[in-house]
Design a protein around this nucleic acid. Structure first.
Lengths: 203, 203
DNA sequence: CTGAACTGACAATCTGTATTGCCAAATCAT
DNA sequence: ATGATTTGGCAATACAGATTGTCAGTTCAG
C-alpha cells in the first residue's frame, strides 16, 4: 500500500497553511486599498490580484465570491477602528462624558489618518449584497453596544432608535467632513458630534 | 428644392414630444418601482422596459445611461417628498418647533406610505456613480436649506456640520425603522428624531 | 388607397468580467 | 540530480448585460 500523502511541504520556508494565510492577507490588504480608492463595484478581481502581486488563481483559493473578500476587508477595518476607539475611551478615565468625547475624537482622527479605509467603511460599502449588509449591521450593532456601555446613562433603558439616530449623525458628520476634504479641524468635528450625542443624555 | 421635413406628426392623438414625454414618464415610474424593489444594481434595462411596457429601444430614446434614469427617479421622488414636507410645515403654523415636528412627522409618514420609494431614496442609491452622488448631495442640500429656513434659530449662523449630523440622524432613524418593518408607531419615530434635532436649538 | 412615419418584437453585436484550464519555470525533498 | 509540488502567467471559456440593427405590422396624412 502507498504511504499516505503528506499534505504539508515547506516552500520558501513556510508551510502550506502559512503560505495560504499570507496570500489571503495580501489580498485583503490590497483589496482594502483598491476598494477604498475605486469603490467595490468599480474594481475587478484582476485589479485586486495585481495590486496584491498575486495571480487570479489565488483569489479563488481563499474566497469564492468577491463579496467574501469585501466582507473580510470591512471586518478587518471595523475591528481595528473599534479597538482604537475603545482603547481611547479607557485612557480617558472614568467620567462618562469624557469617555464619549474621547471616543468621538479617536473616531474622527482614525478616519482622517486613513482616508481610503474611511471611504471603504462609510461610502463604498452599502447595498452590495445581503451578506455585506449583514456584516454592516453586525458592525454597527457592536459599535452601538460599545457606545451604550461607555456613554449612555446607566439609569435608563437604552432607546434603540435614538442610538441609531446618534450613530447616523456621527457617520454623516464624517461623510460631510470627508467630502469637504477634511476642511474643519478634527477637534471641531468631534465637538459637533458630541453636541449631537447629547440627545442621549436627556430623556 | 424639397419641402422641409415636418418633424411632428400626430400619432394616437398626440404629437411626437408628448409621446416621448409620456414614454419617458412611463420609464421613470416603472424604474422607481423596479429599483426600489430589487435595487438599482440588480436591475437591468430590460427589466425596467418590461415593467414600463416598452421596448429597450425607447430607453435609449430618453436616456443615454442607466445612471440618467436613476437620477430622474431619485429627483422625482425627492422633489415630491420635499413638497409634502414643506407643505406640512406651512400647515403647522408659525411656531418653529411645531413646524419642525410637523416636518419630521410628514417625512416618516411618507416613507411608511411608500416603502419602495423610501428604499430607493435612502438605501439603493449610494455609491452608484459620481453623477448620482452629486444628485444626492444636491437633494440633501435642498432639504438642509428647508430645514434651516423652517427650524433653525434665526439669531445664529447655521452650523453646516451639525445640520449634516441631524439630517444623518433623521435618515438613520428611518433606516433602522424600515429595517424593523416599521415596527414603532410613526409618532414615536418622529418624536425620537425631534429629540435629536434639539441639538440645533442650543449653541 | 398609398406611401411614409411610427411602433414593437427580437436578433446580432459588443464589451467587460468572472471562472477555469494549461503549461513552463521555480522550488523543494531525497 | 531528479521527480514531484508549487507558483506565476496567461489563454480559453462562459456569461450577462448593454447597445445597435433589422423588419414586419400599424397608424397616419392627404
Amino acid at each position: 500500500m502507498n504511504t499516505p500523502i503528506l499534505p504539508t511541504r515547506r516552500y520558501r520556508g513556510s508551510a502550506i497553511e502559512a503560505r495560504q494565510a499570507q496570500r489571503r492577507q495580501q489580498l485583503v490588504d490590497a483589496a482594502s486599498e483598491v476598494y477604498g480608492r475605486n469603490g467595490y463595484r468599480h474594481s475587478s478581481v484582476k485589479q485586486v490580484c495585481d495590486a496584491a502581486g498575486l495571480t487570479q488563481r489565488y483569489f479563488y483559493e481563499s474566497f469564492s465570491h468577491s463579496d467574501e473578500l469585501l466582507i473580510a476587508c470591512y471586518e478587518q477595518a471595523a475591528t481595528a477602528l473599534r479597538e482604537e476607539i475603545t482603547s481611547a475611551a479607557e485612557r480617558a478615565g472614568p467620567d462618562r462624558l469624557e469617555r464619549g468625547r474621547a471616543m468621538l475624537l479617536a473616531y474622527y482622527q482614525a478616519l482622517k489618518a486613513r482616508p481610503l479605509i474611511a471611504n471603504l467603511l462609510l461610502v463604498e460599502i452599502r447595498g452590495i449584497s445581503p451578506a455585506v449588509d449583514q456584516a454592516i449591521i453586525r458592525a454597527l450593532q457592536e459599535m452601538n453596544r460599545d457606545l451604550t456601555r461607555v456613554v449612555a446613562r446607566p439609569d435608563q433603558q437604552p432607546d434603540e432608535l435614538l442610538h441609531a439616530g446618534v450613530m447616523g449623525g456621527v457617520i454623516h458628520i464624517a461623510l460631510h467632513w470627508m467630502a469637504s476634504g477634511y476642511r474643519q479641524p478634527t477637534e471641531v468635528v468631534a465637538n459637533t458630534a458630541f453636541k449631537l450625542s447629547a440627545a442621549m443624555q436627556r430623556d
